[in-house]
């Protein structure tokens, strides 16, 4: 298994992209997951549906709209332009934004699930122990939802590594900027460089398999260790 210099640079770019996207998604996705887990608002279902859209939409659809919005005459494009940032499509950060949308459900849903599993009792207990909402969020909710955060990070990272369609739509194929592994493999195949394609594809299979294996091992270990503080709140 040998990698060309271009392969290595594609691998680094992919890792950089996936790390950035995962970190951003943990910051953005956590409050969304918390809101979805707690709210009884009418807007819960519509927001949950929007978050889940990338699961069913073809990446080309999402990519197409993002391209328009981020383009020179699009809403975001005009903002970035007036800020002197130019336009985002076909840049690394354009790719980051697209990936944040595209990987959102893989991060929000596991966090939301584990937050819902905590139930209300630990929060009530925290409130009777003088912990305000923010205090109990950081000292009770996040520690108890830890398995969800770990699952979310793994899935968010792995899913970003595996993107292809949206990268082509938004990022194109610019070395060191947007040419990630999946695009690099596509290039190799187009150029009939099958042995190179084999190396990278094989690496991707091994990577993805290992990640999923770790994930399932982790989940098995923690299914016996999910928050014990869940009790039906017996109304008397």
């Amino acid at each position: 298994m040998t990698f060309t210099e271009a392969d290595i640079s594609a691998i680094w770019l992919t890792l950089r992209l996936a790390t950035t996207v995962t970190l951003l998604l943990l910051v953005i996705g956590t409050p969304i997951a918390w809101w979805l887990a707690r709210t009884r608002s009418f807007w819960k279902a519509p927001v949950a549906a929007i978050v889940a859209l990338p699961l069913v939409l073809p990446p080309t659809v999402l990519g197409f709209y993002l391209l328009i919005v981020m383009g020179p005459s699009g809403f975001i494009g005009q903002i970035t332009h007036s800020l002197g940032l130019g336009t985002l499509p076909f840049t690394f950060w354009g790719l980051v934004i697209a990936s944040v949308f595209y990987s959102m459900p893989f991060v929000v849903q596991p966090i939301q699930n584990s937050m819902e599993a905590i139930g209300t009792r630990p929060l009530e207990a925290a409130a009777t122990l003088r912990a305000g909402p923010l205090d109990s969020f950081f000292t009770v909710v996040i520690p108890l939802a830890k398995p969800g955060f770990i699952t979310a990070s793994i899935l968010g990272f792995a899913h970003t590594v595996g993107e292809f369609g949206i990268v082509l739509m938004i990022g194109g194929n610019i070395p060191d900027e947007t040419r990630v592994i999946s695009v690099q493999i596509y290039d190799h195949v187009e150029a009939l460089e099958f042995s190179q394609a084999h190396s990278l594809s094989g690496a991707m299979v091994i990577f993805s398999f290992s990640v999923l294996l770790c994930l399932y091992w982790f989940q098995r270990k923690h299914s016996a260790f999910t928050p014990r503080a869940i009790h039906s709140s017996a109304k008397d």
């Binding site: 925290a126 409130a127 003088r130 109990s136 520690p143 108890l144 928050p227 503080a229 009790h231």
Partner: peptide, 27 residues
């Protein structure tokens, strides 16, 4: 609730499962 000067013991245990007994007391 968190600003009321009260202590509350729930019907069934409400200890934080991620903390030891001592951790719960320290909380």
């Amino acid at each position: 609730t968190h600003k009321r000067s009260l202590g509350y013991v729930f019907q069934e245990a409400s200890l934080f499962s991620h903390l030891t007994a001592e951790g719960n007391l320290n909380y």
